[in-house]
Structures are given as C-alpha cells and as structure tokens.
Amino acid sequence: MELLNTFFVAPFASMFGSPLFLAEVIIGGLLTGVLYSLVALGFVLIFKASGVFNFSQGAMVLFAALTLVGLMERGVPVWLALALTVLVMIALAWLIERLMLSRLVNQEGIILFMATIGLSFLLEGFGQIFWGSNVKRLDIGIPNESIHLAGIPINQFDLFAALMAAGVVALLAVFFQKTPTGRALRAVADDHQAALSIGIPLQRIWLIVWSVSGFVAIIAGVVWGAKSGVQFSLSLIALKALPVLILGGFTSVPGAIVGGLIIGVGEKIAEIYWGPVLGGAIENWFAYMLAMVFLMFRPQGLFGERIIERI
C-alpha cells in the first residue's frame, strides 16, 4: 500500500499541490526539449537525404563550436568568425563527401554508420589537436538571469536559445518546402534512383545536406557551448538526441521537434516527482524508456515513415 502511495499518489499530490511549480517544470522541460531537438535535427537531415545515421553529429557540434571560439580567441570579430565557421563546416562536408561518402556509394547502411563512428573520433581528436582541450568561454551576450511571466521564473538564456532553435527550424522548413534545392533534397530522400534518373546530382545533394547539418551543428554548438563552456563534453550532447530520434522518427523534422519537447518535459517531470523515490538521476535513462514505450506502439516513431515491404 505504501509502495502504491509512493509511486502513484504522492507524486501527483505533489504536482497538483503546487501548480505554479508544475508549470515551471513544464516550461523548463519545453525549453530544454527545444535544445534537444536542435541536436536531433542534424541527425534527421542527413538520415533523411542519404539514409546514413551520422554518429559523428555530436563531434560536429564540438568541432563547430571549437572552430568558432578558437577563431574568436585569436581576435577574429564574432561575425567574421561565424562566417568562417560556416565555410569551415562546408569545407568539412566537401571533404566528407569526397573522401568518405563517394567511396561508399551502394554500401550497406551499417558500413556507412561505422564510417561515421570513425569520423566522430577523427573530428574529436583533430579538433582538440587544432584548438586545444581547455574549456573555452563563449559569451553571446544573453543574460543568464530569470524573468517572471505570470509568477513563473523563466531563464532568459533558455528562452533565447529556444527562440533561436525555433528560428532555425522555420528556416529549414522554408528551405525544404520552397526552394528548388530543398525539393531536390526531398526527392533524393524519397527515392535515390528516381532522383538520379531525372538528373538530380546525388553528390551535390549530399554536399548540401552535410553542409546544412554542419550549420545546425554550429547553432547547437553556440547554444550548448554558451551554457557549459566549449569543451569536449559537447560531443556527448548527441546522447541526449538519441531518445528524441527514437521517439520522433529518424526522417521527420516535425518529429524531431515534437520528440524533443516530449522528452524534455517527460524527463523533467520524472526526475522531479519520481526521482527522489528512485535514488535520483533518473532522467537520462527515463528518456530512453519513454522513447521505447512509444516504439512499442509506433515502431517508426511518432512521425517516421511507415515501413511497408511488399513481397
């Protein structure tokens, strides 16, 4: 009886006993969730266009942030540093396409996946040799203090980061829906062979999609780097995106967004209301558990494409 009370009564009593705090937890979870979505988006873009699960997305976030801060530390003005970082990520995409992807065309997905694991270690090591392993401060000028909305404290930085992430998503939506390149990307995503047959250059598309993913990595690197300092741990942020992908589906941009929000709110509620009775620090594994529960009902994720095999 006590067990039932601990798990099924007390947490809910605590939630509804303090609705203002519950609202704060939910808002905190939503804002964090948007940041998870930002990292997840990088995975989705590449998987959608090429079927490659890019294990190195976290390393790309680290590499982008290290490059940006490294340039700024050497006196390069912030906007020029940002522009140079974008170009570096395009150059990286080009190198990846030339030296890795083009040599693995028509290989099994697992081989491409293994190649991205290698790429991940390469980027982490190369980034540290090039820019050093010390923590680097990244100040983007957004205050860290909270503002109060209807009595609920909201961190200004988190709010700004969420808005920035939302802006990137909107930009990507326009790019995919309204531009010829975006339409070509969607065509490649739907069917490689059909896209090739109507003259869409696959290698160019791959270069573009890896570059766009690199751009998303810069934004994620700036946001997470400003929160914790730019350091090796940034590459581990990819682990936070995995349950989002499982839940939202590997091929859906809206899935990454909604998945991020569900995971963000879910893990915060679990940690705060059920964490204390389970010894604390449950949010990491809870996120994966939540994603797996969704998988039981929708194996392709919330917004993933349904897997139909005709025999």
């Binding site: 937890v25 705060i272 620090a281």
Partner: peptide, 21 residues
C-alpha cells in the same frame, strides 16, 4: 537533501528546479 547528477552533467535543469523549491 541529496541530488545526484548523471555523467556528464550538461543538463541540470531539474536539479536546480528542485534546489529552488
């Protein structure tokens, strides 16, 4: 009050919400 933070600890929103409460 004991509040555990899992490795690596980049995201601690729930820990600090609990501290505020």
């Amino acid at each position: 009050k004991q509040l555990a933070v899992d490795h690596p600890g980049q995201e601690q929103k729930s820990t600090w919400l609990q501290i505020r409460q």
